[in-house]
Nucleic acid binder design. Sequence first.
DNA 1: CGTTAGTTTGATTTAAGTCAAGGTGCGTGG
DNA 2: CCACGCACCTTGACTTAAATCAAACTAACG
Lengths: 233, 233
Amino acid sequence: MPALDRSLIQGLPLFTGLQPDDLDVILKAARSARYPREATIFEQEADAHSFHLLLNGHVRVVRTTPGGDQVITRYINDGELFGIAPAIGRKSYPASAVAAVDCVVLTWPTHLWADFAARFPAFADNASRTVGARLQETQARVVEMATQQVEQRVAQALLRLTEQAGRPTEDGVEIDFPITRQDIAEMTGTTLHTVSRLLSSWEEAGFVKSGRQKVTIVDQEGLRKIAENRHQK
Amino acid sequence: MPALDRSLIQGLPLFTGLQPDDLDVILKAARSARYPREATIFEQEADAHSFHLLLNGHVRVVRTTPGGDQVITRYINDGELFGIAPAIGRKSYPASAVAAVDCVVLTWPTHLWADFAARFPAFADNASRTVGARLQETQARVVEMATQQVEQRVAQALLRLTEQAGRPTEDGVEIDFPITRQDIAEMTGTTLHTVSRLLSSWEEAGFVKSGRQKVTIVDQEGLRKIAENRHQK
DNA sequence: CGTTAGTTTGATTTAAGTCAAGGTGCGTGG
DNA sequence: CCACGCACCTTGACTTAAATCAAACTAACG
């Protein structure tokens, strides 16, 4: 196995403040793996033996309820940590992680988390900032779910996706991985039917273009008006 | 001003693993204050100059949306940190904190967070576990909002409140601070009318007793059946 | 080229919000 | 100490957003 090169990770926010030597130490302990589209990286409730960093690709984090409903907790993008349950004292993963496209992932055994945190304060710091940021985001989402209508939530979700995973095309900004109506429904707490109707009507109004597992935002400002409930009905 | 005694905080999970001397150092930097019922401890969007520990009482954390809707993010109970925005790299508070009853609060200037974290690894660790736990909780709440009906969410909210702030009485377990129908609505993303109707029907069924700003859970198991959607309609 | 996963759209139902009006317990000021 | 007023609570009637039910269409993949 060729050694992993530190250039893979040295630009990442997670590792700012670390010495090149530190990166090498960290990388030496990592295992890298590829996951094809739709492969499961880890399973909800499974023993949390590892934590992960997404080098390349997009990962869907999904919680399944006892009743069988699924909710997409978040999408993980290039350079982000995921499956960090162990870091916050959990024995098992609270959600499953599935590759939305072919992915390259670095993986470390859980017990190294504490080592890294102790040895590299900047790492501990950055990681804790990551968790903090996710808490903020998640709380914002609770507020959204509590106060906004489906239409606004779906518009907001699309805007966030374009920010995090948008790829400019001639028509506008396309979400850079395959995403179904069902996926969008699971992100926003609605049904695929409602999402389909919304996309149809937005397509008619010229805000988006969409097809099978594909959404392109044509008019961000227009969508933002919907998200903020400032548009003409 | 009399020095704060370390016995005030030494039993708290937040400080496990710290030496008595460490506690003294930490306490020496704290300012303690009392807040009467309904007093604002800090305001959303305000400059986050301090972080806080609730010694005694109950604090409501509330987010207000641009549209003026309010959502109760969480209740803080004895011994918990709050207003730790600075810890996760925020400049301003993302929510307001209001005393639900008369409260005693320890307060430190924000800049000490980094000092404490650097000087007392156990503190950094415990705090980071706290943030992690809140992330878990908040994500669970998103799932709830996305998949459960109002009835189940309200039942669940009451069960959580009794766990965190229940006081046994002859009738059952009473929530240990004044709480309105509106408050419960703001915790669960519904309206005071719907909460009122639910409480009325549960009172009739013998699951709860409630009055002005007061709720007592009489039959936890019964409520749990509702929360998990296992009850006879 | 057939099968299946994903999508669309119409019709109907329903959970919960909104609108409206009174009722009631409690703290305050006279 | 009492009564006045306000904050909180209840309940009925109606409306509506979004779910559910149902069916057909279509793109991609093997």
